[in-house]
Design a protein around this nucleic acid. Structure first.
Lengths: 194, 194
DNA sequence: GCCGCACTTGACCGCGCGGTCAACATTCTC
DNA sequence: GAGAATGTTGACCGCGCGGTCAAGTGCGGC
């Protein structure tokens, strides 16, 4: 693992991350060996350890990069919107849209959440996302637009809906993003009663 | 692996499953070796392979047994209830109650869902549970008590809420079951608007 | 022209894994 | 109490893993 990377080196690193993401998503982290990753790229094993200290580090970097990207997308979507309920809706839609474009990351994140080694990173990422949602919820509760219940639990409920609809409808199924997003937003705002 | 088991044998098998469940939940499936399982019980490795054909089989049996138990609990809870909305509520409460009592299974199920080898078993279990929910939802839609939206997506939304609240509030946190269940039911039935 | 650094190679290492098995112990059956 | 069936032992096996490294390649700067 080296610090200084030339443009050529940065490209290799990106190739390894892309390749790793694909294989981890397809077969899972443990069943994918470092040998598999470098073989898929047609290079020697040493290349991997030139860019990453370990297999663990590759996954950690993938998790960091994907979370960074997702958050950027959410923040851009919410922008300057003042209405807290609308902010929640825009956040939900941005998450679904991002996962629709990066389906391969879903399985990776899902796995990482169950692994002692990576769970801390994931937990931190999730806490930040939840904290964002809680802020909007509290604003909505003050406005009287949202029922006065524990905002932390409500935030987790929303994230649960988003996660499961992402998995079922976007990753496994291939339903139109807009329809899924509309239902997701409607369910979160009005429940089954609608 | 043997078919005929005396009472003594059945007890050993149960010990191995309990032990495996605990270790898989604590450290994860891959990082837990068969040697760890038998060591925790203080017996030789051969014992494991007398009762199970492989490590995979142990996990598969754990998944089957837990699913069977959870379903039994749900069916007992729903009983003869006629109101479809109430049936959904009772199902939600039964699921949360079961997981509150069997927290160790949550991590195992979560992992199995991300592993190529076990995903099929989990997918089948989930499909059955979803199908149950869909039946109640359709009844509710006919009655006009539930909004006329895609019942499959609604069912997944509900399961997403239950799963995430289970994870956060019951498994990681340790919140009172009743409070979590009340909020979960309220969110599913009425959404944030309440 | 050549030095040095970024980068690549692939044989190799040690380890711990899942799984096997011959021998042995205990318990049932008649 | 003989013999079969059930249950137990732990040394052993082969393998493939994550990771190392001495050697080599090719490019940019001087």
């Amino acid at each position: 693992m080296r610090r200084k990377l030339t443009p050529r080196g940065r490209e290799r690193r990106d190739q390894l991350m892309e390749c790793g993401a694909r294989l981890f998503a397809e077969r899972g982290y443990h069943p994918t060996s470092v040998a598999d990753v470098v073989a898929a790229l047609g290079v020697g094993k040493g290349v991997f350890y030139w860019y990453f200290a370990s297999k663990e580090e590759l996954l950690t970097e993938l998790l960091k990069a994907s979370n960074h990207d997702l958050r950027k997308r959410q923040q851009q979507a919410i922008g300057e919107e003042a209405d807290p309920v609308r902010r929640i809706e825009l956040g939900i839609r941005a998450s679904l849209a991002w996962f629709a474009e990066h389906r391969e990351y879903f399985a990776i994140i899902q796995f990482a959440a169950t692994d002692e080694t990576f769970a801390p990173v994931l937990a931190r990422n999730r806490e930040i996302a939840i904290a964002d949602t809680i802020r909007h919820l509290k604003d909505g509760i003050v406005d009287g637009r949202i029922a006065d219940r524990d905002p932390a639990l409500l935030a987790h409920a929303i994230h649960g809906v988003v996660a499961e609809l992402t998995r079922h409808s976007l990753v496994e199924g291939n339903l139109p993003l807009d329809e899924v997003a509309d239902l997701c937003v409607a369910f979160c705002l009005e429940g089954l009663a609608g």
